[in-house]
């Protein structure tokens, strides 16, 4: 009888099994949970300002003050060249981009240990959590980017910067940056679940990584022998492309961007791979 039942009745909608494919991302499932993504992004946004007096103004305070400090320290004390670009525009560009990348990476890397209780109680596609961070930081980035645009327009009217058509590539650049931080974030978050050492590594790693990225200096100031090293960093091309597009300065070629895209792809795939491997048993090891 039992056997017969099984033949008649095989229309299972879901089978829970020990291990899944390495590169399998259930896109449909993530799509089904899109409302959760929206809610999480909203949560980040709303709770950020609860019980603050200045509210959204804080979005502007960080980049403005960081830029001012950079102008004083790197621009006027250390006298680092900005390729003839007004210092404010130059540093603001770097700060805005770097803020996005570093906050994304830092937050995604610890997202699972921070939300351990939730993960231990409810199932939802785990990828939603790092995704929500990347998206909510993107909104923050968007707001800060407006500030940057305003500054660019101001200097453009004075003829000090030369924006060009590469501006149209901005969405691609942002996607690349998001994918890179998501990929790296997934790798780190998967590892931090088991090996907490990664958190320590990341905290100072991100700080040091900023100096390996043209945030506070243009590529042109670098001695020739260090350039290949800097170029190996996929963020270099993205940052330089941004600066070239909006400020009209910097060493940039489409070839570099292709290289960046490839590296980002590899990192992203690697992130997915590692993430898939540990995802199913997160709850046991957190």
């Amino acid at each position: 009888m039992e056997q017969e039942d099984r033949v008649i009745d095989p229309q299972w909608t879901e089978v829970i099994e020990p291990r899944s494919g390495l590169f399998k991302i259930d896109v449909y499932e993530i799509w089904r949970y899109r409302d959760l993504l929206v809610m999480l992004v909203r949560r980040d946004f709303v709770t950020y300002f609860k019980q603050t007096v200045l509210g959204p103004v804080w979005f502007f305070v960080t980049p403005i003050f960081t830029t001012i400090i950079y102008v004083i320290v790197f621009g006027n004390i250390a006298n680092i060249s900005t390729d003839g670009i007004p210092q404010i525009a130059f540093y603001l560009c770097g700060v805005t981009l770097w803020n996005y990348f570093s906050t994304c990476l830092n937050d995604t890397a610890t997202v699972f240990s921070k939300n351990a209780t939730m993960l231990g109680k409810v199932y939802f596609p785990r990828l939603i959590m790092p995704l929500s961070i990347v998206v909510s930081k993107l909104m923050q980035f968007g707001v800060q980017f407006l500030l940057f645009i305003a500054v660019v327009i101001y200097f453009w009217l004075q003829g000090l910067v030369r924006p060009n058509l590469w501006i149209l590539a901005s969405p691609l650049l942002i996607v690349l940056m998001a994918a890179f931080s998501l990929g790296l974030g997934m790798i780190f978050s998967s590892l931090t679940v088991k090996y907490r050492d990664m958190v320590q590594l990341l905290t100072f790693g991100v700080q040091l990584f900023m100096y390996a990225t043209p945030v506070i200096y243009p590529v042109s100031t670098l001695p020739e022998r260090y350039k290949p090293l800097l170029m190996a960093n996929p963020l270099t091309a993205i940052f330089e492309a941004f600066k070239y597009a909006y400020l009209g300065a910097g060493e940039f070629s489409p070839g570099m961007l292709v290289y960046s895209s490839c590296v980002v792809c590899v990192i992203f795939m690697l992130g997915v791979l590692i993430f898939n491997k540990v995802e199913k048993n997160f709850a046991d090891t957190i």
């Binding site: 299972w12 909608t13 829970i16 231990g120 709850a283």
Partner: peptide, 18 residues
């Protein structure tokens, strides 16, 4: 926890309708 997919089984499988 296994049924609600919070964690996955070491061996065996669970089939669900709905």
């Amino acid at each position: 926890k296994l049924l609600s997919k919070v964690t996955s089984p070491t061996t065996g499988n669970i089939k669900v309708k709905g």
